[in-house]
Simulated assay, not measured.
Amino acid sequence: MKRMQQPYLDFLIITVLAITTLLFAFIKQETALVSVIWKLAGAAILLFAPGYAAVTAVYPRSKTANQTRPTDSDTSGQGLSGTERLILSFVVNILFVVSITTVLIFGPWGVNAGTVMVGLAMGGLVLVAVATVRRLTIASEDCPDLRRTTTRTLETLQSEFRLETTAGTVLNVAVVIALIGALTGVGFAVQQQPTGEQYSEYALLAENEAGELTATEYPTELTEGEEVTLYVQVSNHEKESVQYTGVVLLERTTPSDGSQTVTESTELDQFSFRLAKGESKLEQNTISPTFTGDNLRLTYLFYKGESPSDPTRETADESLHLSINVSSTSG
């Protein structure tokens, strides 16, 4: 029963931070509140929490004034003071971030703020479980007390950083700058998602005779005024929500210097929707050709944001097209 009274507040805080980070990493709709909670929980996970769990798993004891050297049968390790545990936690956490990032680089997930934070949170939960098992093996009075440890650590830091000499002042300032620089560098590197990972994906699909959506069996022989249904699939792989606008054009083209020149164009439809980061949408689109001809071009233009007053392939962020033949209803 005595073990159940051991302090586990530090592990509880890390667990709440890790679970919060995981939950908010998969929330599609971003709001100001979600963003603030994500950043606060993420900052603790990024800078300190998993490292603290790892250090506590290896060194579960708290150093006390009358601590004796552990015996050969003692597997719980030498105790740490609050200051030692704090510094080691920061250092180990930096190594943990580097390790997670390396795994993501060589894995299929890619390196960005989301994947790194999820990896750190999951790793933190595993380390908390290990540290909890380790803490169960030691006496209650040897466990770190969060309130007492925090107070003593602040007092120790205040004592150690007293500006007694010029040399001591320079050394203290250098240590603080180095620590802040290291933590800032890690945070900046994680938050800067590589540009290669930011893109939007577009696809034009049609329904075949079996009722399945396909990217190969498109209707190509149409009649003027006939309604035909196609499907547009858009996937947002950007790091933020995006407003997409689609414009559907029917174009007549003629060959000119190895390319196609548009000689006639009419807008058949326009649609718009917003996607959160990581979200996809399948948009049904029904159009009717308004003029006839062979080798006409049915063009879908995609814009991030609003479309211009005169949409063209040159101004679009992406374009897809089909070659179709449109015959007259009179035969």
Rank of each mutant, 00 (worst) to 15 (best):
T165I: 09
P50V: 07
P255E: 05
M117H: 06
N325H: 06
V130C: 11
D269I: 00
D10Q: 06
N285I: 04
T115M: 01
E227I: 07
A53H: 03
E30D: 13
I180E: 05
V232K: 10
F271A: 12
E207A: 03
S140I: 15
E212N: 12
A131Q: 00
Q233K: 14
F271K: 04
Q260I: 00
I94E: 08
G185A: 04
L171N: 11
T156K: 02
S73G: 09
E264P: 09
H321T: 03
S81H: 01
R297N: 01
G107S: 14
Q260C: 00
G119V: 04
L320P: 02
G168F: 06
Q260R: 04
S307C: 00
F24G: 00
D310E: 10
S99Y: 14
E283K: 13
G119I: 03
G51H: 02
N66A: 14
M117R: 02
T253C: 02
G51R: 00
T263V: 15
V118P: 02
V36F: 09
G51E: 01
T21G: 09
P255N: 08
V133L: 14
R252K: 12
A18I: 08
I100T: 06
V186W: 00
G225S: 10
R61I: 02
T290L: 10
A54T: 13
N66C: 03
G293R: 06
P194Y: 03
P194T: 04
F24L: 08
E155L: 08
Q67V: 05
N172W: 02
I180M: 15
Y218V: 06
Q193M: 13
Y59S: 04
V173F: 11
N93D: 02
I94H: 01
Q67W: 14
L179H: 10
L268N: 09
T75C: 11
L163W: 13
P255W: 14
D294F: 00
I13V: 14
A129N: 01
E212Q: 15
I100D: 00
A131R: 07
V190L: 01
G305K: 14
F24S: 05
N285L: 11
I14V: 15
L249N: 02
V118I: 11
R274N: 13
I45T: 01
R252D: 04
V36H: 10
